[in-house]
Design a protein around this nucleic acid. Structure first.
Lengths: 191, 191
DNA sequence: CGAAAATTTGACATGACTCAACTGGAGTGG
DNA sequence: CCACTCCAGTTGAGTCATGTCAAATTTTCG
């Protein structure tokens, strides 16, 4: 089986063919085209999404009406409104496809069922969440440690792949700066 | 047994008295006085800390030489440099006691041993990390959604306990603003 | 090819910082 | 228990990084 999710889990623990099949049966696959909304703010029954192919972002609408990106996810990343998913309350965020994207998703009910049927997966999700938490701390650190200008160049240098796949205004949004300012510092830098 | 950690775990799963004792034997207790350093940047063999009593903060030294607080932890919270702990590399952060504090700590080696001996704890740590990750997302959201001034009043209103226990300059640091500016907006507000 | 979306450009505005000096209160030791 | 020190908090003047707004230009894609 060359399922992206199963292979990903197998990086952390071993699964028999039977187990793989059964685990896989808890998930559904969906495809979204560029700019399509995957999850809406206010959605009840939030799902957890594994990106099999493509790229999405998690965002909210700030007080000033602008879309504010909080997180990107590409192949082999999980993404959702973690807190809402955990607490079974409506989502406070949107998820939107940035390019054509294939996701595997699972509802909270199925997720709990899956974990109680296959407790060995607790380890997988424990590690996934530990990594996600660590990554957030790092992100917060950059927020404070770098000027806005530095944070932009730091980002594109550290994640060159994103500069290719993600439009400039979304990178700006992720870093909390205006598209105009990004434009300004780029031309300043390259001249 | 009235151990804070064991009670906390019991919020999420049940433990026999024997199990509790055995699990507890993996941990060590330490006490720190006000301002004492709990973990240093560069520490090898990082531990994960459970706050039994007191209050600490996780911080790093920013490029401009200032201490930058990333996270607070009070009773029943876990705190460490998550990513470094996971990957067994030296810590990128400091932890310092804000008041007299009692912690229970466990090394990565012991932690792995504990989890393989008691796989049911995977669930506990999965949930802890899921909550921590969700909290970080929320924190990032506030960073973007609120002006610095708003973020201050939002914080003290949302966590009144911290305003009592944590000095003003540390709250400023946590929110990424200067002590002078906090002082300014406070006097502006209360007059 | 044409329309919509993304990026650039420039003039102007301001939130928040820097630096330096001052104030007040909490410890500490003699 | 006084005197002194030190640290947290305040105040004020000056500055700058970054934002706002509006318009022009370029790119994308149906």
């Amino acid at each position: 089986m060359e399922n992206a999710l199963i292979s990903h889990i197998r990086n952390y623990l071993s699964l028999s063919v039977i187990e793989s099949k059964e685990i896989w049966s808890f998930f559904r696959e969906s495809t979204y085209s560029k700019k399509e909304i995957v999850m809406e703010m206010g959605d009840k029954d939030i799902k957890n999404y594994f990106i099999a192919k493509g790229c999405v972002h998690l965002y909210f609408i700030a007080e000033n009406g602008r879309k504010q990106t909080v997180q990107f996810a590409i192949e082999n990343w999980w993404i959702t409104d973690t807190l809402a998913f955990l607490k079974c309350v409506p989502s406070n965020f949107y998820i939107q496809a940035i390019e054509k994207t294939v996701v595997y998703h699972i509802t909270k009910r199925k997720y709990d069922e899956l974990l109680s049927k296959y407790p060995k997966l607790e380890k997988y999700f424990r590690i996934i969440n530990q990594i996600a938490h660590g990554a957030s701390l790092l992100r917060i650190r950059y927020t404070f440690d770098l000027s806005k200008e530095e944070s932009y160049f730091n980002f594109v240098q550290q994640y060159p792949e994103f500069e290719q796949r993600v439009p400039q205004y979304l990178i700006a949004s992720y870093l909390g700066l205006t598209p105009e300012y990004v434009s300004e510092i780029r031309t300043k830098r390259f001249s």
